[in-house]
Amino acid sequence: MGVWHIPDTEENRIRFRILPLSHTIPSPDGIEQIQKFKQVLRSKRYSENTITTYSEALKLFLVFYREKAIAEITNDDVVIYNNEYILKNNLSASYQNQIVNAIKLFFQTIRETKMLVDKIHRPKNAKTLPNVLSKEEIFRLIDLTTNIKHKTLLALIYSSGLRISEAINMKIIDIDSQRMLIHVKNAKGKKDRYTLLSTKVLELLREYYAIYKPKMFLFEGQHGEQYSSRSAQSVLQQSAKKAGITRPISLHTLRHSFATHLLESGTDLRYIQDLLGHSSPKTTMIYTHVTNTSLKKIINPFDM
């Protein structure tokens, strides 16, 4: 399992059959346009994560058409790119949708273009259901997490329905133990909201705080920096292995489980929407397809 680093030279790329260096970067005009694109997104107050995601997606598209002037790129070129790059490399529909978002936003900022932005079609969305753990699996997973910081992090994400970015961006002052609420600030879509604070999680938080004494962020790394999402995902995978959970899960699975368990316990969908910070009730409605409360009332004809 050794790892080696070698210089990124044309000779080494030929030797290891990697695309030439010149084929991995856009044309000089493309590089300049990507920088301008980033500036436009920043002026519109897009998050740095979104700017990075869109600019990297756009870069791949402009690398594909590095021999073609940007002003000459048309809607047909997007179709060709989808077929010759996205589909040929078995990339997902969600990734393709990300590319479409980047292309649309980019060509809206270009004055001289043959691209008809409104005519750029999106891939058909796959109607996949969120992966959900049972309450027993959630509690086993958390109980078998021995490190108090890791245990508190997982318990907080599940009990409050947080996104991982919301959990690692959280500060000590965001915990309102008087009202038993958590103030989620500047979340997805630059929205603030309040969500639930569990009494048991509050006990965990106090125990965790007494040991680690974080200064700024609620969860900090070894040197006081913001805790990374990669470290949090690694914690989850280790705990899932201990709990005997073999199917693939992510930290977002805890958020999905929170919403599903609330729905199964009779919580109104509108309240769940507010707790999760969804803009549209349609997004929250997906949990009605994974709850088993109503399904349990149906008698299987095989059992009659």
Rank of each mutant, 00 (worst) to 15 (best):
Trp4Tyr: 15
His289Cys: 04
Ile18Met: 15
Ser177Gln: 10
Asn97Tyr: 05
Glu207Ala: 14
Arg247Tyr: 07
Tyr212Met: 06
Asp8Tyr: 12
Tyr46Met: 02
Leu133Asn: 02
Leu204Phe: 09
Ser228His: 09
Glu166Val: 04
His261Trp: 12
Asn90Glu: 11
Thr74Tyr: 10
Ile249Phe: 06
Lys188Asn: 03
Lys242Thr: 03
Ser250Cys: 11
Arg13Leu: 09
Glu67Asn: 13
Leu91Cys: 07
Thr113Asn: 08
Leu218Cys: 10
Tyr271Gln: 08
Ser43Thr: 08
Pro123Arg: 14
Arg15Met: 15
Leu254Gly: 02
Thr74Ile: 05
Phe219Cys: 06
Glu67Thr: 15
Lys135Asn: 02
Lys135Arg: 13
Asn12Tyr: 13
His256Ile: 10
Ala126Val: 13
Gly224Phe: 15
Phe106Thr: 01
Leu21Asp: 05
Thr74Trp: 09
Ser134Val: 08
Leu262Tyr: 00
Ser47Leu: 06
Gln226Glu: 12
Lys135Cys: 02
Thr50Cys: 03
Pro7Trp: 12
Leu276Thr: 00
Leu181Lys: 05
Lys68Cys: 09
Gln96Gly: 04
Phe219Val: 10
His289Glu: 04
Pro214Gln: 11
Thr52His: 11
Leu21Val: 12
Pro248Phe: 03
Arg179Ser: 14
Lys213Phe: 09
Glu203Ala: 05
Leu202Asp: 02
Ile34Cys: 01
Val117Lys: 10
Gln178Leu: 14
His150Thr: 03
His23Asp: 15
Ser22Gly: 12
Glu72His: 04
Tyr85His: 14
Tyr85Val: 14
Leu62Thr: 13
Thr52Tyr: 10
Lys44Thr: 03
Arg193Tyr: 01
Leu263Trp: 11
Lys188Leu: 02
Val79Ser: 03
Arg111Cys: 01
Lys104Asn: 05
Arg179Pro: 02
Arg163His: 10
Thr109Gln: 12
Ile175Met: 04
Phe302Trp: 09
Ile31Arg: 11
Thr109Tyr: 02
Val63Glu: 10
Ile86Gly: 06
Ile120Pro: 01
Tyr227Asp: 05
Asn89Lys: 14
Leu262Ile: 08
Ile142Cys: 06
Val184Thr: 06
Lys213Met: 11
Ser27Trp: 02
Lys188Gly: 00
Leu133Val: 09
Thr145Pro: 00
Ser265Asp: 15
Arg13Ile: 06
His23Pro: 03
Val184Glu: 04
Ser280Pro: 11
Lys68Leu: 07
Gly244Val: 07
Ser159Pro: 00
Leu144Gln: 08
Asp118Ala: 14
Thr284Ala: 07
Lys190Val: 01
Phe217Tyr: 14
Lys38Asn: 10
Ser198Cys: 14
Ile86Asn: 08
Tyr81Met: 07
Leu254Ala: 07
Phe61Ala: 05
Glu220Leu: 11
Arg66Gly: 00
Ile168Ala: 00
Leu269His: 07
Ile31Val: 13
Ser94Lys: 15
Gln108Cys: 08
Gln108Tyr: 11
Asp8Ala: 08
Leu153Met: 07
Ala259Leu: 06
Leu154Asn: 00
Thr267Gln: 12
Asn75Ala: 02
Ser22Tyr: 14
Thr260Ala: 08
Thr267Asn: 13
